[in-house]
Simulated assay, not measured.
Amino acid sequence: MIDTAQNNKQKGKGMWDAVIEAFGELTVATVIIFAVAAAALWRIYRKAKKYVIKQYKKKEERNKKIQECLDQIKLYPKWRQQSVAIQKEFTEAINGLKEVQEKNIERLEEIEAANRRRKRNELRERLLQSYHYYGSKDKNPMQAWSEMEADSFWKVFKDYEDLDGDGYAHSEIQPTMNNLEKIPMHETEKIRELMQSRR
């Protein structure tokens, strides 16, 4: 038993001797350098690991996007068909609206033309009334009119022309009215005489 203990002691001593022989020449500075190098290697390893993981995730994301694009491309023929169908519906709807719009425009043009004719007839009637009154030697013996009456008449005449009025208005009415004497409004005595002369 004592031999066994001594044997173990000598074996342990031999092991220490081997360690001392292997590392006996190491100094504290060498151990510190070794520890710092090991720590630096550990940090580099961790950074490299994070970088590799980050790159892997980026690649995974890119692959995912590429797959989504490929899936979308596969759906393109279906979308194209739907687009053509929708475009056809829109075209038909637009053509329908266009027809309705053209009919509405045609109807509005007819209404506008009728309104213009009606207005032109009303203005012609007013011009004729003025012509029969101011141009008559019985009703207007001085063959004159006030400046205000003349301005009013010629404005109506211009409106009549703007509505494409013609005919007797230019050949009969206009020359007669141009021959009437126009009395300025500030000549009050002459205006009074004019008004008293009329019937």
Rank of each mutant, 00 (worst) to 15 (best):
I73T: 07
Y134L: 03
M177W: 00
N140G: 01
G24F: 02
I32V: 14
L26Q: 05
F157G: 00
E99Q: 14
A48M: 13
I86D: 15
N95K: 07
F90K: 10
D17H: 15
T176M: 08
W145Q: 13
K50T: 04
K54G: 02
R118H: 10
C69D: 08
L128E: 09
S152T: 15
H186P: 03
A85T: 02
M185W: 06
T176L: 09
A38R: 07
E172R: 15
M15R: 14
R117D: 10
E21D: 07
S130V: 07
E25P: 03
A38Y: 06
R46M: 10
R198G: 01
Q72L: 15
N8I: 15
I111Y: 11
F90P: 06
K137I: 14
P184G: 08
E21P: 00
E112D: 10
I86Y: 12
E68Y: 10
Q101C: 10
E149F: 02
G167W: 00
F153V: 02
A169C: 05
L70E: 06
G167R: 01
N95F: 07
L163K: 00
A113Y: 05
K98I: 05
Q174R: 11
Q6E: 12
M15F: 13
S136N: 00
T176S: 05
A113N: 03
K78S: 11
K88T: 03
E89F: 03
Q87W: 03
Q82E: 06
G12F: 14
Q101W: 12
R107Q: 14
T27R: 07
A5L: 13
T176P: 00
Q67S: 13
W145K: 13
G12S: 15
S136E: 02
R107P: 04
K98G: 03
E92F: 03
Q72A: 15
H170A: 05
W145C: 14
M1H: 15
A5M: 08
I94G: 01
K59P: 06
A150S: 06
G12V: 12
V52K: 10
S146P: 00
G14P: 02
N7Y: 08
I33L: 14
R117P: 06
A5D: 09
K88D: 11
P141L: 01
Y168I: 15
F23H: 12
A93N: 03
Q6K: 08
K54C: 01
S146I: 01
R117E: 07
V52A: 12
A144L: 00
I86S: 11
N115H: 03
A37G: 11
E112C: 09
L123K: 02
Q196E: 15
A144Q: 01
I66L: 02
L128Y: 06
R124N: 05
P184C: 05
E25N: 09
N104I: 05
T30L: 06
D166L: 09
D162V: 01
Q101I: 10
K54M: 05
G14H: 06
T91H: 10
E68A: 15
A29Q: 09
E189T: 13
Y56M: 15
I86P: 07
D164S: 03
V31G: 02
D17M: 08
P184S: 11
I183C: 01
S83T: 12
R126K: 13
K190E: 04
N7L: 12
L41H: 08
I173W: 00
E68Q: 15
K47V: 14
I44Q: 08
